[in-house]
Design a protein around this nucleic acid. Structure first.
Lengths: 158, 158
DNA sequence: TATTGTTATACTCTATAACTATA
DNA sequence: TATAGTTATAGAGTATAACAATA
């Protein structure tokens, strides 16, 4: 028994739709999550190009904005990035004067992270862009469907 | 109004659970897809380390096995990879003598892809590993839930 | 002109290891 | 001993650009 699936391709990948035997690969959760995440990621890259930020950079900016004084380990943990990855991202944000590091007085190992005025200004724009991006995808679902989808997704990593 | 969320972290990331204000970031579909995909991806990397393959390499091997004679553009399209990415992955598989390229007699621009006997042998093992990996995640859901989840995910990129 | 494969190149994310300083 | 940050390094994936061969 063969499962044939028509995959519609983004214009920049491949030439046209291709019919391939997926041999049950397309019955796997991991397959669909990867496709869905890839699709949304490509779109958010384009969306955030307007402010020259990547998704991780934008998410980090967002969390620092909501949690002034948070540490790198805190931000990284929330976004599931290790220390080295978080480091690189905060470096980038600091290099653009969007975020500042301040040595913590309570625990001198930690650096407290804060948005600069520029960071705060950019975050306003980021929130608009990300919200619009999210809407473009979430409007494909009813509120109930969206709620179900998010609840089920959370069970994968919760 | 602040939404506080407890995130349980993988042992290799961060020190312990951290409570952060996500400021609605955790109400976004993109956020949860990324977390879920990251979780499954980390796990499949560990799983496929036994055969020294990445997820993309394994998926490409799988599709070539199911579609003997498929072209790179065909494989890449099905997995949503551009030509350069597909090229690198097939190069790796060919370098390990798992896949061979044969010039097509019908369209001499194309290279037909085939598994070698070694590739076929390894694919058997890959299917066991991937299926076990999938089961570890899919068993968190009832059949109905899994069906719903996959159907909703497919709507994102369909 | 368009498509397939190829090569070169660059960037992001991810991860590991080792080091400093602080707790 | 453990934690937070840092630095160096490496690999995978993604993407663009340019080119050759072929349609």
């Amino acid at each position: 028994m063969k499962s044939e699936t028509l995959i519609t391709l983004p214009e920049d990948i491949g030439a046209a739709g291709a019919i391939l035997d997926f041999d049950h690969l397309d019955q796997f959760l991991g397959f669909h999550i990867r496709q869905a995440q890839g699709t949304m990621h490509r779109r958010i890259i384009d969306t955030l190009a307007a402010v020259d930020l990547t998704q991780k950079q934008a998410a980090s900016l967002w969390l620092v904005g909501a949690n002034p004084g948070a540490s790198q380990i805190g931000i990284g943990g929330a976004l599931r990035m290790d220390r080295a990855t978080t480091m690189a991202i905060i470096d980038r944000l600091e290099g653009r004067d969007l975020v500042v590091r301040k040595r913590s007085m309570v625990d001198r190992r930690r650096h407290e992270l804060y948005l600069t005025p520029e960071g705060q200004k950019l975050l306003v724009q980021v929130k608009k862009l990300v919200t619009a991006h999210e809407t473009r995808f979430s409007e494909r679902f009813t509120p109930d469907e969206l709620d179900t989808l998010i609840t089920l997704l959370a069970r994968i990593y919760g």
